[in-house]
């Protein structure tokens, strides 16, 4: 990513506007000009920003039944080989279906920003 700086055209007159210039390969401008679309993860941006409540798995209680993985509409839950679920917070919209379907009720929905990120592992 590179930054382009130009002076503001608005009449408040005192701020600089910083535009992000997207130089990442998956950017819209760099996609091949075809009449068909290419599949990609996060096709419409990081939908994790929609979230109000974060799902947090209590790994001590989790029985690795994979029910959350099965019903997750966003396909953001990935499983380890032994079935331990992990949530991709970049794309999770925080709908809470996983917390609702969990047979042991070991997924808690906590308000965004209050999650202890070190707790994850």
């Amino acid at each position: 990513m590179s930054l382009r700086v130009r002076s503001c055209r608005a009449h408040s007159g005192c701020v600089l506007v910083v535009n992000e210039v997207n130089t990442e390969p998956e950017g819209r401008a760099n996609m091949p000009k075809t009449s068909y679309s290419k599949p990609s993860v996060g096709a419409t941006g990081k939908t994790g920003s929609w979230r109000t409540f974060d799902p947090v798995i209590n790994y001590k209680e989790c029985s690795k039944c994979r029910t959350c993985w099965l019903y997750c509409p966003e396909a953001v839950i990935t499983l380890e080989d032994d079935g331990t679920p992990h949530i991709d917070y970049d794309y999770c919209k925080g709908c809470g279906i996983c917390a609702q379907v969990c047979p042991r009720k070991c997924i808690d929905m906590v308000r965004k920003g209050t999650r202890d990120e070190e707790d994850e592992e």
Partner: peptide, 28 residues
């Protein structure tokens, strides 16, 4: 469920369906 793990999901994450919509689960 054991067999399901072998299958690829046909809809990737990051689409714009509303949070909590059941249609992506149906597609899955």
């Amino acid at each position: 469920i054991k067999d399901m793990l072998e299958k690829d999901e046909i809809l990737s994450s990051g689409h714009r369906m509303c949070a909590g919509c059941a249609a992506p689960t149906i597609v899955k």
